[in-house]
Design a protein around this nucleic acid. Structure first.
Lengths: 200, 200
DNA sequence: AAAACATTGACCAAAGTGGTCATTTTTTGT
DNA sequence: ACAAAAAATGACCACTTTGGTCAATGTTTT
């Protein structure tokens, strides 16, 4: 199967699952959106559940990819977080809904899939979040700021910034140099706030 | 009709509309959740659309209430934002989903209601966001920080903080003094960052 | 005890569901 | 050029759910 077609199916299916949840998600809508026939979809996947778990596995693999792309030698928290942000942005060019899809899994409560979801997500959450902050040099932080709170503010700022940018653009393709500069200025504001005077 | 019952219906209906969007939202689910009969629902509202627009109007009124409760004499941006945050928190005690519902309206694309939604929301967005920042004293800000960016960081931090707290608690009732103190410490971090030395 | 009002849920036609499969279209190997 | 194999189609199915109705039943008020 052509990769472009596969992407179309994956994105259409994720869109529908995100919008409607597992049970109400309509395979009819998916095939319409992906521009394939109903028969095709059920040739590739034996049933709706099968498709759903394929998407989950696919999403989990994509998340894993983030960790192999992170440069663990970068010990500065701002640079590390920026890295993660831009890796995510790149992923969203191909699969715009993959993070929404993963988020939707946490809220899914269809009896039919709930337990399997929890099983598949247990690993990603336990190991996941800690790994992003591995080998970070916390010593640059001012002593009177709790690292956890600084980290939260930084994270919320990046998430908010990203959402704002995504709302502004129409396509993930037209992401320019302006975005880097804009994010840099936010970074500078918080750096001056969190770091001891003179550092970095 | 007893106000407690009315609340039950409103919250059940909002829950379903948020979860499923206008078209897929099931009136059957609503009556089940609100513990009333199908007949009752359609006595109060002539049809689904009618119910939907009632909820929108209700939500808009609630938002309006925020603005009358804000103390416009408080010229400090941090205190102003904190006020808004706590007013919102109080609203959510009664209507936990009202903000999610309003947000869901922006993503709604059912042909049947789209144009009317845009009409009803036009005002709230145009006038709304500006009003929160009316009469703020920006002179305390360090000159090398763009007010818009400081405001964004502050807003994102408050939103992130609120989401974190809401995820932690099971009921809006058990909001204690600890929350105030925790938010205060975030406020202090950002104040020291954004304000000229020695101010406030 | 009668009149007025509120609430119920079985019922309906219509639409939508996940999934099938005989048939057609496209690709492949020679 | 042609046949065999593979891929794609969409009408079709039995079944569920939909928004909405309304005669019957319960509850209040007069």
């Amino acid at each position: 199967m052509k990769p472009e077609k596969q992407e179309r199916i994956i994105n259409a299916a994720m869109k529908e699952f995100v919008k409607s949840g597992y049970e109400k998600a309509s395979t009819n809508e998916m095939v319409k959106d992906a521009q394939i026939s109903k028969g095709s979809l059920f040739n590739y996947f034996s049933n709706k559940k099968d498709l759903y778990f394929f998407l989950i596995q696919n999403a989990v693999n994509i998340i894993e990819q983030i960790y192999v792309e992170i440069d663990m030698n970068e010990r500065d928290i701002f640079e590390r977080i920026s890295q993660v942000g831009f890796i995510k942005l790149n992923i969203q060019k191909k699969y715009p809904l993959v993070f929404d899809f993963l988020k939707s899994l946490l809220e899914e409560d269809a009896q039919d899939v709930k337990s399997d979801i929890n099983l598949l997500l247990a690993n990603i959450q336990k190991n996941g979040f800690k790994r992003i902050y591995e080998n970070i040099d916390w010593s640059k932080l001012r002593e009177d700021i709790e690292p956890e709170k600084a980290m939260n503010i930084l994270n919320w700022t990046m998430t908010g910034f990203a959402e704002l940018q995504i709302a502004k653009i129409t396509s993930f393709e037209d992401i320019g140099i302006g975005l880097f500069n804009e994010w840099d200025s936010y970074k500078e504001i918080l750096k001056r706030c969190f770091y001891k005077n003179g550092e970095e």
